[in-house]
Design a protein around this nucleic acid. Structure first.
Length: 672
RNA sequence: GCCGAUGUAGCUCAAUGGAAUCAGAGCGGUCGUUUUCUAAACGACAGGUUCCGGGUUCGAGUCCCGGCACCGGCACCA
């Protein structure tokens, strides 16, 4: 039995004991991890709840400590439980039978549900993340989105879900139009000239998305003084949306090249996608029309014949967030007959959930180095020789979108739920997160002149339009260069390719952990020093622990010792008990328990939609291992049984640590 | 104005209503630790009126009410 299973048995026992002894039915038995290992391995504050319920039903006032005492024996008789103590005001503190637990969990899979993800009956969910406008390079704020989405996706997989990762491409939006305006009217380039430019950039080792980054900022600046140019924007946007013309063709090239660049950037961080759904197809395949029909039929929207919204189709929306007039309805179709952004979003969300009744066509887009394929949507059926995977139809759909979009996301969720009440609002989850902003100091470090007002602000929002931001590739380059210097100083003898690989792995670890250690609703105020650090609470710290653990096993392999042989010695329960210690604060036991909590931690992260929970756990696990490593010398241990116990515990720790890091998208380097 | 989020150590952040003497980390500060599975590390010390005022509870950083501060969102834009 592993920790979660033991916890379940304990819960059941508490529930039935509460019923048989006191006639009280308690639905959810809360289990806690005690604040310190001295206080036990699992704690139940159930006696307080029990006292409350007894008072409510019989009026009798009971002392929680006495109630806890009465439940104690029921729990103590359970397998794997060593002892149960009543502590504090009425806590039931459960202590495991340490030797028995260790023997049973010595070779346990730290993520037992991960294999279920591949099974045909696994629940399918869709996760949309990244979704960077394909008109420029990705910046660090986009990377927060991607890292959050990718790590969350990995967590869902580890808990046994089948996951499809979608990266939405808004290839017909105003942001792409702006860059197209820049190419066409600021630079007088046609498609041929842009292609030639692309080749030139490639040859010079520069990237197309960086070029667009600057161009986009130039266009934004030019708009301020050049009204004629700004007029071109609407014209270009219209041509792009319409399709089938040279401007649309040019825009498609620009957007696709940017998508390729952004995919490359993300792959550097081990972030990959299954599908790239494009807005152009949502338009051309008339997704909205189908959604519109359904919404009219179901009475979810209605036509407004008078008032401010006369001539529009609107969806009633009770929780009106704002607008001091009393118009709380959301317009989905304008009086000129065109659909709003929110309308399109509802149709698209319906497709994700498999309730639209329309599908995209698909074309194979790109094969990653690891063999994974990513597909893209198309309007026409293609003569695709590969078998097209089934896309969409998620049981639950997670949209990783920053929290400034909470209101529109709320409308989409409620709209979709109105169309399909049986699926309800719970099928659409907005995985909201706060932005990454710049400290005024960081903005100046990037060469931005600040106004006095800006300097007083707590942070400065990044802006693609202004070209203000830390570009992802730039930051990764800096991290890799710094890491490489550190590797050089420690392992000068390694061949260049190995040094580069390690530097790369460390850079990814640093960046991903940095973006994950904050909870979602914390604004990250970007600070170069902190982001570039390899010390303290960093990904590198966690990687270092795992590397240390692996080095023990490398040495053990040289002497021919096997973990299996060590495990078989655990039968000597008395001897093992003597080594792990009955001391409540035993650091060996604390290592065992911490390593055994990975699955629990994943479940918590999945339930709370909060990858930071797993990041914190991973750091804590690494820290616990570093202490263990410091206190116990395995290779020089001469007592055979103690040595075996240490080996088994170190093995549990490194497997849990490796699995935890893998779920955060962080690799363990060979050496550090 | 309305809706939402946030306020915790010098700084950056954690803390499913729960812990008896201790509200935790990391950074920064001070002092220590290496005859190598061990310094990208480990230990110790210093640092707190959890924004303010009420309330609920056996128990409140957490829940409720009232303030204050700060951030974001409030188009027939996309």
């Amino acid at each position: 039995m592993n920790l979660i299973e033991i916890q379940e048995v304990l819960r059941k026992t508490v529930r039935s004991a509460a019923k048989s002894r006191f006639g009280v039915e308690i639905e959810n038995i809360a289990a806690e991890t005690p604040p310190r290992t001295e206080l036990g391995d699992i704690a139940f504050p159930v006696a307080f709840e029990l006292a409350k319920q007894i008072k409510q039903t019989t009026g009798e006032k009971k002392n929680p400590r006495e109630l806890a005492e009465a439940l104690k024996d029921d729990l103590e008789s359970i397998n794997f439980i060593g002892k149960v103590e009543v502590a504090g005001a009425g806590y039931l503190n459960v202590f495991f039978d340490r030797a028995k637990f260790l023997a049973a969990n010595a070779d346990a899979d730290p993520t037992p549900n991960a294999n279920n993800a591949g099974l045909p009956d696994a629940i399918k969910v869709c996760v949309e993340h990244t979704s960077v406008n394909p008109n420029k390079a990705a910046h660090i704020g986009h990377v927060r989105n991607s890292v959050l989405g990718d790590s969350f996706q990995r967590i869902l997989r580890s808990t046994g879900k089948s996951v499809e990762i979608q990266n939405y491409i808004d290839n017909t939006g105003v942001q792409v139009a702006d860059v197209v305006v820049g190419f066409m009217y600021l630079e007088q380039k046609d498609l041929g000239a842009i292609k030639a430019l692309d080749s030139e950039l490639l040859a010079a080792g520069k990237s197309f998305d960086f070029y667009c980054w600057d161009l986009y900022a130039r266009v934004g600046l030019e708009y301020q003084s050049n009204a004629a140019l700004k007029e071109k924007r609407a014209e270009v946007l219209h041509l792009i949306e319409e399709g089938g013309n040279s401007t649309a063709e040019l825009a498609d090239f620009v957007a696709t090249r940017n998508v390729q660049c952004i995919l490359d950037t993300m792959e550097r961080l081990s972030i990959r996608y299954d599908l790239l759904p494009r807005e152009s197809e949502i338009l051309h395949l008339h997704f909205w029309d189908r959604a519109f029909e359904q919404m009219k039929q179901l009475g979810v929207i209605h036509y407004e014949s008078e008032g401010h919204h006369a001539g529009c189709w609107v969806m009633p929306f009770e929780e009106h967030a704002g607008t001091d007039d009393h118009e709380s309805d959301k317009i989905l179709v304008r009086s000129n007959g065109t659909v709003t952004y929110t309308g399109k979003d509802i149709a698209y969300q319906m497709w994700k959930l498999g309730i639209l009744g329309l599908d995209f066509n698909y074309r194979y887009f790109h094969k990653y180095q690891n063999g994974k394929e990513v597909w893209i949507t198309t309007a026409e059926k293609t003569s695709e020789t590969r078998a097209v995977p089934e896309f969409g139809r998620g049981e639950t759909v997670y949209n990783v979108i920053d929290s400034r979009q909470a209101y529109p996301q709320d409308i989409v969720r409620k709209g979709v739920a109105a169309i399909s009440p049986e699926r309800g609002e719970k099928a659409s989850i907005h995985l909201a997160y706060e932005m990454v902003a710049l400290s005024p100091a960081a903005a100046e470090e990037l060469g931005f002149a600040l106004l006095d007002d800006d300097r007083k602000r707590p942070f400065i929002e990044m802006s693609g339009r202004k070209g203000l931001g830390v570009k992802a590739d730039d930051l990764i380059d800096r991290l890799e260069a710094n890491a490489l210097a550190e590797v050089e100083s420690r392992h000068a003898g390694l061949i260049e390719a190995d040094k580069m690989l390690i530097a790369h792995q460390l850079a990814v670890g640093a960046l991903r952990y940095f973006l994950l250690k904050f909870t979602r609703n914390t604004v990250i105020i970007f600070d170069f020093k902190e982001a570039l650090s390899f010390e303290g609470e960093t990904g590198c710290f966690c990687q270092y622990s795992a590397v240390r653990a692996n080095s023990i096993f490398r040495k053990l392999a040289e002497t021919g010792e096997s973990v299996d042989a060590c495990r078989s010695r655990l039968n000597d329960q008395g001897g093992v008990e003597a080594i792990i210690g009955t001391d409540p604060a035993s650091d060996l036991w604390s290592m065992v328990v911490t390593a055994s909590r990975l699955e629990e931690s994943m479940e918590q992260a999945a339930t709370a939609n909060e990858p930071a929970i797993l990041a914190k756990y991973t750091f804590n696990l690494a820290k616990t291992f570093n202490l263990f490593y410091h206190n116990h010398k395995i290779l020089s241990e001469t007592d055979d049984l103690k040595r075996a116990v240490l080996v088994v515990i170190a093995d549990m720790a490194r497997r849990a640590l490796t699995a935890a890091l893998d779920t955060l998208g962080i690799e363990v380097p060979e050496k550090m």
